[in-house]
């Protein structure tokens, strides 16, 4: 059905391809559209009471109001966790990228260490963090301060959860930034150095602006991921208040038959907040001159 429009757009100078060029994207589009559009439509329908497990479908917003207060608190908590960990990840990742792009042995060491955590599934990262930071974890054992060990796992500040996200995401941000800086910055930096810019000057006027787009992009990806991910907060968190994904999964798995629409409602709210975050990041990126 896209044929008539796309035919016109094929470049004349090249040998005529067998498939109109724009259609090359169609297989990927079909899969993504099925998952994104199909998934969103179905979850919205469930949240509005159109697909009950038992009984007749009936349009209602009851699922959204059933846990109104918890939904607000959970949303705030999720934002705080994702925001803090993303901020930490960006700071640490930026430092790591600066060290990595110096090359030499310490750059290589940091690059090697950070690529260790990249392929690790988050659930494994969470389990490892638990073994490290829990009340009876490695650090508490080594420092022998069990009685006074701060409540990092399951504590009021969600420290272990934030630590895990910041840990894995700082490696992600660092490697993305190092990749961007390595391809772009050497020439600029040399020029700046030739023109007499000092260390801080080079950092402020060359490296920071150069890495800002990549920092924003990777930071946004990291933020959305930690905002919508379940297993880390489930393993290292506390039972109340709950971040949105944990609340959604608890309701989804609850044995009460009315709780599925409520779980879907929490999911819809999570998706809406994620979408807002992405739109804000895009709006910000457009203002950055280096963004292509």
């Amino acid at each position: 059905m896209f044929l008539p429009e796309t035919e016109v757009l094929i470049t004349r100078s090249r040998p005529k391809p067998r498939v109109p060029g724009a259609l090359l994207a169609v297989p990927a589009i079909v899969i993504v559209a099925f998952v994104v559009v199909g998934g969103s439509a179905m979850v919205t329908a469930q949240s509005l009471g159109l697909m009950p497990l038992v009984g007749r479908p009936e349009l209602s917003t009851a699922a959204y109001t059933a846990h109104g207060g918890d939904l607000l608190v959970g949303g705030g908590l999720s934002l705080a966790i994702a925001g803090t960990s993303t901020l930490l990840a960006c700071l640490i990742g930026f430092m790591a990228a600066l060290i990595m792009m110096q090359g030499r042995w310490c750059g290589k060491l940091v690059a090697a260490m950070s690529s260790l955590s990249i392929p690790l599934p988050h659930i494994v990262g969470a389990a490892a963090t638990g073994l490290l930071l829990a009340d009876s974890g490695l650090l508490a054992r080594v420092f022998g301060t069990a009685e006074r060990w701060p409540p990092l796992v399951g504590g009021p500040w969600w420290a272990a959860v934030i630590f895990e996200y910041a840990w894995k995401e700082s490696a992600f941000v660092g490697l993305v930034l190092a990749g961007t800086l390595a391809t772009r910055s050497v020439d600029y930096e040399e020029t700046a150095a030739l023109l007499g810019a000092g260390r801080l000057g080079r950092l402020r006027h060359v490296l920071l602006p150069l890495s800002l787009p990549a920092l924003m992009t990777s930071g946004t990806i990291a933020f959305i991921y930690s905002f919508g991910s379940y297993e880390v907060a489930w393993l290292l968190g506390r039972p109340y208040p709950e971040p949105l994904p944990v609340m959604a999964l608890r309701l989804y798995n609850s044995v009460t038959l009315t709780s599925r629409p409520e779980a879907a409602a929490v999911a819809v709210v999570t998706a809406a907040v994620s979408l807002c975050a992405v739109l804000m990041a895009l709006a910000f990126l457009r203002k950055i001159p280096l963004w292509r």
Partner: peptide, 11 residues
Amino acid sequence: TGVLFLSSCAA
């Protein structure tokens, strides 16, 4: 389309 499809979907 999704919603139309759903209305026939009550368990």
